[in-house]
Design a binder for these strands. Structure first.
Length: 313
DNA sequence: TAACCGTGGTT
DNA sequence: TAACCAAGGTT
């Protein structure tokens, strides 16, 4: 395949810095590497379809592949089409979500399925703008579905791709905390012209970041673009500036919410308040967490005062 | 923009 | 072991 691009070596990266290498020179080696090293993931198989791609993208938001795999398989077996999921109470989605974390994603995926069933005839929309309008679908997920499921040409900027570009092109160990306009511009600049090639490029750069160009200990010895990597050329300088402030988790409302929801997930039916009161010592924080889950629609309170995952009756 | 939103494996 | 990290989205 030919990896063409609209750019030339004279293009400048956002911020005025000149690209160290011709971006075209990155396409072939990365795509070739992907051809030989891509993981055989279920959502990459043709039978997954656009719905399978969308389900996987929701589950993979901030959750590692290894933990998504079993839940994805069960989810697709149970709800092979968007309409199948839409026909269920939202609580069933939350329950099936299991311990993947960020259970609001389950609620949003259920909402997206309902919107697809109602507004799109049960088919995952191909249009990027229509994808963006679905609950839980942001900039990344819309581009990923359009690219991976439909072979369209979109800049797919996830944490892996951002890190690969930061190193290979920009010459820094890590990308900025939040995605910047400069990164989007760079991603568009590097995007191959042909949609098929662009889609392959998106998947390949993501896989490169996931398998070799990892955050902690990159495996540069096996990197297909080691010779062109701006970060390596610069001597692999250490990250500048303050360290990423990872949010502490122990003792937060999130932990309490997680404990509360775990109780409801494990129980087949409604649960009395007393069973929930047992998961956390501080009544004030417990109450706040419970209220948060209620307002998020992750749980509901019955007239008799018991709680359950959102049902249909 | 920055805080918030789970969970578990790795270093 | 505490901190970091994982195919982000919403407010």
């Amino acid at each position: 395949m030919t990896a063409t691009t609209a750019t030339t070596a004279t293009d400048t990266a956002p911020g005025g810095a000149s690209l160290g290498t011709d971006p075209v020179a990155l396409h072939a080696p990365v795509i070739e590497w992907f051809h030989h090293n891509a993981r055989d993931l279920p959502w990459r198989r043709p039978e997954a379809g656009a719905w399978g791609v969308m389900v996987s993208e929701f589950m993979l938001q901030q959750t590692p592949v290894s933990r998504v795999l079993p839940v994805y398989e069960e989810w697709m077996r149970r709800w092979p089409r968007p309409a199948d999921l839409a026909a269920e109470p939202a609580g069933e989605a939350v329950r099936a979500w299991g311990r993947l974390g960020y259970p609001r994603r389950a609620l949003r995926l259920h909402g997206a399925a309902a919107a697809i069933a109602e507004r799109h005839g049960g088919e995952v929309p191909t249009d990027h703008h229509q994808l963006l309008a679905l609950p839980g679908v942001g900039e990344y997920t819309a581009a990923a579905v359009a690219s991976f499921a439909y072979g369209q040409r979109h800049a797919v900027l996830d944490t892996n791709v951002r890190r690969v570009f930061a190193r290979a092109v920009t010459g820094t160990e890590y990308p900025p905390n939040a995605t910047t306009a400069a990164e989007r511009k760079l991603a568009r600049l590097l995007l191959p012209d042909e949609p098929e090639t662009a889609a392959r490029w998106a998947a390949a750069t993501m896989e490169l970041g996931a398998l070799l160009c990892t955050a902690r200990t990159p495996d540069c010895g096996r990197c297909p673009i080691l010779e062109q990597c701006a970060w390596r050329r610069a001597g692999a300088p250490a990250h500048q500036g303050p360290p990423r402030r990872g949010q502490t988790y122990v003792g937060t409302d999130r932990q309490v919410r997680g404990k509360l929801l775990a109780v409801l997930r494990e129980m087949p039916g409604p649960v009395p308040r007393a069973a929930l009161d047992r998961v956390w010592h501080d009544p004030e924080q417990r109450s706040r967490a419970l209220g948060g889950l209620l307002s998020d629609g992750l749980i509901e309170r019955l007239p008799d005062g018991r709680y359950r995952l959102p049902g249909s009756d």
